[in-house]
Design a binder for these strands. Structure first.
Lengths: 412, 412
DNA sequence: AGGTATTTGTTCAGCGATTGAATTATTTGC
DNA sequence: GCAAATAATTCAATCGCTGAACAAATACCT
């Protein structure tokens, strides 16, 4: 929403600097080639004098660094290009999912500088034990980050479930978690990161939300508004509107798995009938394709399905077509409601996208009134299966880029 | 969205004043009793000196005025209360609908200071003629406003249809409009309002969107996020998220009328089957209740239906229950997707709310996963049938309150 | 009544941040 | 080697907020 809103606090003298720090740093982050101070001056409307002063602060704070002279233009003194620092603050991204733990570190520029994936079936593991393993992995990540000159400025944890404002996991059905006070449990361990004003030490959020954020901040950057659908065991959607994740009143937006695609259809464990999850959830697709759902990790089953479809197996193709149609019915309603022009298929859907996209697009074409005037694009996620963890880490550094004053104002 | 975003332009010296003008004026607008300068200082965090200077600007610009001394507290010099001026800028709200034209004027405080409703069947009238009638009514409204010391700072027009970025009406099916260049047609007439920097001379928007805005800014103010459903001949939804209207990528959000509530159900003129409009649209309800749809205006049919339901007519009660159930199916999906906690039934639904709310709530209870933890409230609109016009006019004055520098900077 | 405490609102020096012009720095082209 | 061109810095001026002192207006106490 470009609408004017969010009345901030009092605008004192220092606020001016805060705003301009964010403005200049944002420009540097958004630019596709290292801009000079003069470029920034014309781009922002500030004078070169002000830009120089602002950049000096950013350099002193390790947020940007000077790059090799950019490709020459014509005559004149050569410009010194400015890029986001590859040392300095970084974000720690964590994910607990059904069959893996992920820890990663992302720097200011959005580069993944550390990545650990620990495969294990987490369902029989108690939450506190799972978190203890995660803390252990995070400790190694922190040491690796320090070795690269990075300081962890904050952490974000992705969980496939409903998280409330305090960071407590209210319900993560596929993980078997219920009312798990994650921040409290983690506080028993040594701190994962440094403390930076304006950056919460730990943010807990839904896996689908953070995957959507990862997509938003991937490069090339995603569109400002889109729907990101994570097809895991359940089906969750992350809603990005005008460049910001929309979390809903309680932070529980995106529950698309129980959209009624066949009101008189199969009963669902939620108590309703004909929910989307029963037709386009991973288990439903795998079963419909005639694959015996072994005790394999979900991504193995997905990979097998993609192989079969690739080979032209008719059962697999039909299962995917039916799932795509069901998904399309739900997606079309969302697109009608929110007037979005981009839908991203992520999580387990990404490798199946070649077969899911056509029926989804067909349903959109048939059901979205405005599709004739403005086409809707449906595409797979560009990030891999670690989208949520990368998105989590990215959300930390994005916060610093959006409000660098907090980081600069810290001791040291 | 409280999320940090919307990087404004360069923060120059004057930006500070702009921000603080908006901050102080916003506080005055939001306060429930006239605050003193000292109250504003503590509320905003600014010093009393700054608040005095800012208020002086606002007083000079006719945006606020000093009220009678507020009720005494204890000892000390009595405070001078500050209220939004009842002279000065005002907004012009316009609406073209199937069977009426509305023009109204709303002042800074949100009070309706002028109102004209012109009943007529607009379907056989050419768009340019309908707009000419509207301009005529607006002329009288402007004269009336001037008589009350008000200056019209901008106008907004509500149309039941799809409007694009340029203000052109792409499609208004129930009105029979298609590709009507409203701003161009109106520019042939004398200007409706004065020109104020930062306020577009004419904004054209969907009727459901503006009705939702009216609800948001009614007093007491609505919640920051809610869904407003206008049940007219079609069914449109206005989506307010975090205190701002969400318009979608193209400005066409809120198309809920073609939500598939019965995938194998009745064919709809949109080409789909079982659309919500076929079960909860005004015509559908009236027909199901056994009323012969005479050539009466829609609101008469609605009133008649309410009478019958009041009297306990079984056909009417059943029709309303069925419509409410269909509506509830769609609303539940929206609530699941966006995690909203408030749904407002407006337009033609408002008088029928006593009978529609129970089935809607029942469907929400059955289908919304999180309803057990955080109840969803469903209530009728507090504004009358002129909600869209009032919301349109309100959107103009809200813009001035949100960014008073534009108004203050004008000549005169 | 008169004095004092209390709260409101204004005045004024000080200061931080931006501006705009002048200055310095560094390269290309002639 | 010199002029033109572009980049970046320096510095006085200015704008707007702060903080403290001051003036205004009332209630409470004796």
């Amino acid at each position: 929403m470009s609408p004017t809103h969010a009345p901030a606090g009092a605008a004192r003298q220092g606020s001016l600097r805060e705003l301009n720090l964010a403005l200049v740093l944002g420009r540097i982050a958004a630019a596709d080639r290292p801009p000079s101070r003069a470029d920034l001056a014309t781009a922002t409307g500030l004078t070169r004098a002000t830009v120089s002063a602002v950049v000096e602060d950013l350099l002193a704070g390790q947020l940007v660094s000077e790059a090799d002279p950019a490709p020459r233009a014509g005559a004149g003194r050569p410009a010194r290009g400015l890029v986001l620092a590859d040392t300095g603050p970084a974000g720690l991204g964590l994910e607990v999912n059904v069959d893996y733990l992920t820890v990663c570190v992302v720097d200011l520029a959005g580069q993944v500088r550390h990545r650990t994936v620990h495969r294990a079936d987490l369902r029989p593991v108690a939450p506190e034990d799972a978190l203890a393993r995660l803390v252990d992995l995070a400790g190694h990540a922190r040491a690796d980050a320090a070795r690269q000159g990075l300081t962890l400025a904050g952490a974000a944890l992705a969980v496939p479930g409903l998280i409330d404002d305090s960071g407590q996991v209210r319900l993560a059905p596929n993980l078997g978690w219920r009312d798990v006070p994650v921040p409290e449990l983690l506080s028993a361990h040594p701190a994962l990161t440094d403390q930076v004003p304006g950056v919460p030490a730990l943010m807990v959020d839904n896996e689908a939300n953070l995957a959507a954020l990862g997509e938003l901040h991937s490069r090339p950057p995603g569109p400002a508004s889109f729907l990101h659908i994570s097809g895991e065991v359940g089906i969750g959607a992350g809603i990005v509107l005008d460049g910001a994740l929309f979390r809903g009143v309680r932070g529980w937006s995106g529950e698309i798995g129980h959209f009624p695609v066949h009101p008189q259809g199969r009963p669902c464990r939620c108590g309703g009938r004909g929910c989307l999850e029963q037709y386009a959830g991973q288990e439903a697709i795998v079963t419909a394709a005639g694959l015996v759902r072994a005790e394999l990790p979900a991504d193995t089953a997905t990979a097998r399905l993609a192989e079969l479809a690739e080979a032209g197996d008719p059962d697999a193709l039909r299962a995917l077509h039916d799932a795509g149609t069901a998904l399309g019915v739900a997606v079309a309603s969302v697109v009608n409601l929110l007037d979005l022009d981009t839908v991203v298929l992520g999580g387990g859907y990404a490798p199946l996208a070649p077969w899911l996209c056509p029926p989804v697009l067909a349903e959109i074409g048939a059901r979205v009134l405005t599709a004739a005037w403005s086409p809707v694009s449906v595409r797979p996620s560009t990030l891999g299966p670690e989208a949520a963890a990368v998105g989590a880490a990215g959300s930390v550094v994005r916060r610093i880029v959006a409000r660098p004053a907090g980081w600069l104002g810290r001791a040291g």
